[in-house]
Amino acid sequence: MSYYFAMIGTRDNPIYEAELGTFKQGGDGTPKFSAEMKELNPFIIHSSLDIVEDLQWATNSLYLKIIDNYYGYYVSAYVTPTNIKFMLLHENKNEENIKQFFIEVNDLYLKTLLNPFYSVNDPIKSTMFDSKIKLLTKKYL
């Protein structure tokens, strides 16, 4: 199973994107999106943003669960207290694990944000952050 994960800033700008693959059922963590899907992923996420922006005022929760689907792919969302949107494109329903994944990404984001040289909406380029995301994928997805 493959996942596409994006973190979107407050101006609808992506600050981090990654294609992730599952480690479960013998997977080796390599994402296996077709060429078409690779191109479409960011658009799918982007078009779901409107739904997120609407939903986030209807509930206190950070985790918004599944908010959209597209030809068999689900889009799950999570909005941090500072309105950074975590979006995950996934094939299987896995609410509890995805929620935990998002919560731990929020912790990573907080650590990134606490850096005085990082401002909100800056892209996240750290390779350490990348490795941590892959570790979380292994743990939950």
């Binding site: 606490l114 850096n115 005085p116 040289f117 990082y118 380029k125």
Partner: peptide
Amino acid sequence: AEFVELPD
């Protein structure tokens, strides 16, 4: 210097 990472 808690949670500081120098600019890259």
